[in-house]
Design a protein around this nucleic acid. Structure first.
Length: 411
DNA sequence: TCTGGGGTCCTAGGACCC
DNA sequence: TCTGGGGTCCTAGGACCC
C-alpha cells in the first residue's frame, strides 16, 4: 500500500504577488491581465472568489462582477522561481517528487514512518516547513493513489490536510460531484448527467462493461476512478522525475482580430523563432510542425506537416509554418489567434550523422551565436526583421545593447 | 460572460505495409 | 476483382488540466 501526498499551493500566483506587495493581503486580487483586456483569470484571491471570480473566467466578466478588484498582469518568471523553492522543500521529505505543474506536486512517502512519523504528522511538518521557507500556504491530500490524493487536497483547501485512509476511498468519493474527478470536465459531466449520473457514487454503481460501451476506453478509466483507482494514462506509473517535453508551442491572441497579412506573417515568424530557440535549449529536434488559427467566431483550425528530417533551425520551421499558413488562410479573413508548435521531438543524439550538410552547419552556428546574444542582452535584441514587427511598437524600441536589429550570417 | 497560453492524451479515418 | 486483418504513421479535431 502506497502513501501518496498531493501538495497543492493555495492561490499560488496571488500568494506570490502578496509576498511582493503585502498591502494586497485580504483584498480582491485577480492575476491574468487588466480589466478590459482579452484574456482570462489565471488566479483569484479568496476575497475575489467571494464575488464569483474564478480561474478561466474572462477578465471582462471578472471586472463586471467586482469592479474594484485589483487586476495584475502577473510575474511568470517569479512563479517559476517559487515553484523551484517549493520543489526543494518537498525534496527534503522525499526524493520521489513529481511536479505536476508549477503549483502542485505528488510525493511518495511510502515507508517513511520511521523518519517522518505517521502521515498527518509528516503533513503538519511539511506545512510548517513550506510556510517558513517560502512564505506560502499549501493544502495536502494523502491517500493510497495519486487520484484520490489529488481529490483530497482539493477538499482540504485552503491550508488544510486531508488523509483518506486505505479502504475508505470509495466512501470518500461517493458524495462528491463527478466533476471533482480529474479528467471529468464540462463535456463528460454533461454526458453523465444525461444518464442521471451526478455524484461519483452514482458512477461507481455502473458496471465497467456498460461504461466501456458508452464511452470507450475513457469509460473504462472512469469506472476505475469512481472506485478510487489510478486509471488511465493520467496517473499511470509511479512518481518519477521530469520527462522531456513531447511538444513545444507558442500562440498569440491579438487584442483585436486582424486580417493584416504582414502582421500575421510577422507574428508567425516571431512565434516560430521562440519555438526553435526552445528546441535548441532543450537540445531537441522536431519532426512535425503545427499551425493553429482561430477566427472571429472562435472556430479553431489546425494544420500539421511532418518534415523529411527533424530540425531545430528557424528557417526550416518558418518555411513549413508559412506554407501551411498560406494554404489555410483565406486572404482578408480576420484572425483572432495564430499559433505554431512542434512535436515528434528527438534528442540531439538521435540526430547524429543526419545533420552534417555544410548549409545546416552554418545555420546552426549562426543560431547558437544569436541565442547567446539573446541570453546576454535580452529576448528582444536579436530577431529576424519579420519577427521584429510582430507585435508592434513595444518590441522594436528595446535594443539595450545597440545591436543591429537584424541577424547576420544566416542565408 | 465572450472566451489566454502552454501542455497531455485520445479518437478516428486514410495511407501504407506485411 | 466485390475483396482480410493487424500495425503504424500521418493528420485534424477535441477534451481536459493548470
Amino acid at each position: 500500500m502506497r502513501t501518496i501526498f498531493h501538495v497543492d499551493m493555495d492561490a499560488f500566483f496571488v500568494s506570490v504577488e502578496e509576498l511582493l506587495d503585502p498591502s494586497l493581503k485580504g483584498k480582491p486580487v485577480v492575476v491574468g491581465g487588466q480589466a478590459g483586456e482579452r484574456g482570462v483569470v489565471s488566479a483569484a484571491s479568496y476575497a475575489a472568489r467571494k464575488f464569483g471570480i474564478h480561474s478561466a473566467l474572462p477578465l471582462r466578466t471578472a471586472a463586471k462582477l467586482c469592479p474594484h478588484a485589483i487586476f495584475l498582469d502577473g510575474h511568470p518568471k517569479l512563479y517559476r522561481e517559487y515553484s523551484h523553492r517549493v520543489h526543494e522543500v518537498l525534496m527534503e521529505f522525499s526524493p520521489l517528487v513529481e511536479m505536476a505543474s508549477v503549483d502542485e506536486a505528488y510525493m511518495d512517502l511510502t515507508g517513511t514512518e520511521r523518519l517522518h512519523g505517521p502521515p498527518l504528522k509528516a503533513a503538519h511538518a511539511l506545512h510548517e516547513r513550506m510556510k517558513s521557507k517560502t512564505g506560502l500556504n499549501c493544502s495536502v491530500g494523502i491517500a493510497s493513489s495519486k487520484m484520490v490524493a489529488k481529490v483530497s487536497s482539493d477538499q482540504a483547501k485552503p491550508n488544510g490536510v486531508l488523509w483518506i485512509q486505505p479502504g475508505l476511498e470509495a466512501d470518500f468519493l461517493a458524495p462528491l460531484d463527478v466533476r471533482r474527478i480529474p479528467g471529468v470536465g464540462k463535456v463528460t459531466e454533461r454526458h453523465l448527467a444525461e444518464l442521471g449520473i451526478k455524484k461519483v457514487g452514482d458512477l461507481a454503481r455502473l458496471d465497467a462493461p456498460f461504461l466501456m460501451r458508452r464511452f470507450g476506453q475513457w469509460g473504462l478509466a472512469l469506472a476505475g476512478k469512481a472506485r478510487g483507482a489510478d486509471a488511465g494514462a493520467w496517473f499511470d506509473g509511479g512518481i518519477g522525475g521530469e520527462d522531456d517535453p513531447k511538444s513545444v508551442s507558442h500562440e498569440h491572441t491579438f487584442s483585436e482580430d486582424t486580417s493584416d497579412a504582414a502582421r500575421l506573417d510577422a507574428t508567425l515568424v516571431h512565434l516560430t523563432e521562440k519555438v526553435a530557440r526552445r528546441l535548441r535549449e532543450y537540445s531537441l529536434h522536431a519532426r512535425t510542425v503545427h499551425l493553429k488559427l482561430r477566427n472571429s467566431a472562435f472556430e479553431t483550425l489546425t494544420r500539421s506537416h511532418t518534415l523529411h528530417q527533424p530540425t531545430q533551425v528557424d528557417q526550416e520551421l518558418i518555411e513549413a509554418a508559412r506554407a501551411m499558413f498560406k494554404a489555410a488562410w483565406v486572404a482578408g479573413r480576420k484572425v483572432r489567434l495564430i499559433g505554431m508548435g512542434v512535436s515528434g521531438l528527438d534528442t540531439d543524439a538521435g540526430q547524429m550523422g543526419l545533420l552534417d550538410s555544410p548549409r545546416h552547419e552554418r545555420a546552426m552556428k549562426a543560431l547558437e551565436a544569436a541565442d547567446k546574444l539573446r541570453k546576454k542582452f535580452g529576448e528582444k535584441t536579436v530577431a529576424l526583421a519579420a519577427g521584429m514587427a510582430a507585435d508592434a511598437p513595444e518590441r522594436v524600441h528595446e535594443n539595450p545593447a545597440g545591436l543591429p536589429g537584424k541577424r547576420k550570417g544566416v542565408d
